[in-house]
């Protein structure tokens, strides 16, 4: 059984999903009908983190290991209540998605992983953002242990896969990814890393 319930890739300038996958078959119907809306609402938080300059992504990652406050899908856990004074964003946005500017490419890749950004009914939501501003979002199960490192690896593998798809001359940028191969690989990664 996977610790992740739903995975979505959202296009860079739109709210339209490019790819969606239901990773768990055990979810109830009342929750699955909400997943795309939950992912969509999480975009507000992703954008907030993306344009922030005064905090590093590692702080968000670390919050994942400390458990989640009981909440109903707000953004309190990382910025709302904990440090409301810092939620104003910056007047000079950084293209490095809130990460420390560092020449080390590995660190930059790590900075794309935003960690756990939100939660809905105690179901954590993690996110990853590519340099092309495409967002990857995972909605996790509330009652399964989560390994932050594995999630990071999953995102990086999917990112690689996504880059390969972009390089495909038959793929039009911004269109839905319908390749069965892509789907199979994503599910395989999920089965391997999101247990």
């Amino acid at each position: 059984m996977s610790s992740a319930q739903y995975f979505v890739i959202i296009a860079n300038d739109q709210d339209t999903p490019l790819y969606e996958a239901q990773l768990s078959s055990t979810s109830s119907n009342s929750v699955t009908e909400l997943y795309p809306f939950i992912a969509n609402s999480a975009l507000d938080i992703i954008e907030d983190l993306q344009w922030r300059t005064n905090s590093s992504s590692s702080s968000f990652s670390s919050s994942s290991s400390t458990g989640f406050p009981i909440s109903f899908g707000n953004d309190n856990g990382f910025n709302g209540i904990g440090n409301p004074g810092n939620t104003g964003g910056s007047s000079s946005p950084s293209l490095f998605f809130g990460a420390k500017q560092n020449n080390n490419s590995k660190d930059l890749l790590g900075a794309s992983y935003l960690g756990f950004i939100d939660h809905y009914y105690q179901s954590p939501i993690s996110a990853y953002i590519t340099f092309g501003n495409t967002k990857f979002i995972l909605i996790h199960s509330s009652n399964m242990p989560i390994n932050g490192n594995n999630i990071k690896v999953f995102y990086q593998l999917v990112h690689e896969l996504y880059l390969k798809t972009l390089m495909n001359p038959f793929y039009i940028n911004g269109s839905a990814i319908n390749s069965p191969m892509f789907d199979a690989k994503v599910r395989a990664f999920a089965a391997k890393y999101l247990i």
Partner: peptide, 24 residues
């Protein structure tokens, strides 16, 4: 056409919670 598109309202990105408002 494949140029990175940031959208027209770049400045307001991350400075509102309208999507969350709709979801709630």
């Amino acid at each position: 056409p494949n140029k990175l598109n940031w959208g027209n309202d770049l400045v307001i990105k991350g400075h509102h919670r309208k999507r969350k408002a709709n979801f709630f």
